[in-house]
Computed example of a mutant assay.
Amino acid sequence: MIPLVVCDDSNMARKQLIRALPAEWQVTITQATNGQEALAALRQGLGQVMLLDLTMPVLDGYETLAAMRAEGLACKVVVVSGDVQDEAVRRVKELGALAFIKKPADPEILRSTLLELGLFDPKAAPTTPATPAQSSVLDDLKVNFRDALREVTNVAMGRAAALLAKVLGVFVQLPVPQVNIFEVSELHMTLTDAMRGERMSAVCQGFIGDGIAGEALLLFHDSEVADMAKLLGWQPKDDNETSEMLLDMSSIITGACLAGIAEQIDVRFSQGHPQLLGQHASIERLIHLNQRRWRKTLAIEVSYSLEAHSIHFDLLLLFTEDSIKRLTHKLNYLMG
């Protein structure tokens, strides 16, 4: 039996990954929800092989690989992540990872990767598949709505980041997305607290498909717009040209993120034209202008930041209350 560590903060991601393992691979599985737990497992000799996520709280995948190297912990690592930026792949391999697989892991790609690396030999495996142990682990993994939606968003935002990285020529740092159900007053308080009186420009884009509807709200910090224009090679002469730039950026980020979600839950979103809700306005004003549309909403928050630049993008995906039932059905189907 090969001791295997599966490290990911999402129950859904770990469940998908354990399901994707070759059925006849003889492994004992230890789960970790962050890099700190993974390192503890390795120190106890529980990991000869590790499947490692990158975007995690406490200790992320990059930090985990660096800590393994610093401590001299011997373990063969395959990174399985939604962060598919070319630079992310380069960095993890430089830190010692043997391979990179994009989420959600395709069973055939995972199998062929394990074969190529010599971590799995079907000829050496006994004729009886090792499914009972894996089935036991899978039965114990309970996935709730919030965790499932967070993981679907995690994969989608990784694809959006990869596109953004190519457009801007920078490395995009990804957070763990937040999923909450807000009354408009709570949404107001959360955003106001987060922005602390900063002036914002906001682009809104509606979307609808298969009983799921909502609006994507992308917030730009006014203090960072000039730096963003410089990165893009733009020299906006006035507010109109600045608006055009913000609308273009919004189309890239929002479009890629929505496309990533739609592909995973098997829907097709129709998207409205992006609209500038406010320029140089306070977040309080933006909320006041739109509170009727956002009465009670399922909100996904993603905050992108650009490495070595003081530039942040705050993306909010606001789903209508009526969409939650359909989303739940889609996510349940995805989990099978």
Rank of each mutant, 00 (worst) to 15 (best):
P57K: 04
L42R: 06
A70H: 01
L42E: 00
L51H: 02
L110S: 09
L110W: 07
A97W: 12
A88P: 14
V49A: 00
V84S: 09
V79G: 03
D53F: 11
R111D: 00
L59F: 01
E94G: 07
Y62I: 07
G61P: 07
E24Y: 13
S112R: 11
V80E: 00
M68K: 12
L52A: 06
L51I: 15
D60Y: 07
W25P: 02
I109P: 06
A88H: 13
V77T: 14
R69E: 03
K102Q: 13
L95P: 03
K103W: 02
A105Q: 02
V27H: 08
R91F: 06
R69T: 10
E108W: 05
A74C: 08
L46A: 14
L110V: 05
V79E: 04
V49E: 04
T33P: 11
K76S: 13
T64I: 15
D53N: 09
L59T: 07
T64H: 09
D86E: 14
E71L: 02
V79H: 04
L98C: 00
L39H: 02
L46P: 00
V92N: 06
L51Q: 06
S112V: 05
R91V: 11
L114N: 06
A38G: 10
L98W: 07
L46Q: 15
E63Q: 15
A23G: 04
M56G: 15
L73H: 03
V49M: 05
G45T: 03
L51N: 00
A40L: 06
E87L: 14
A67H: 11
Y62G: 14
L51A: 06
D60G: 04
G47R: 12
G82Q: 11
A99K: 03
R91A: 09
F100V: 13
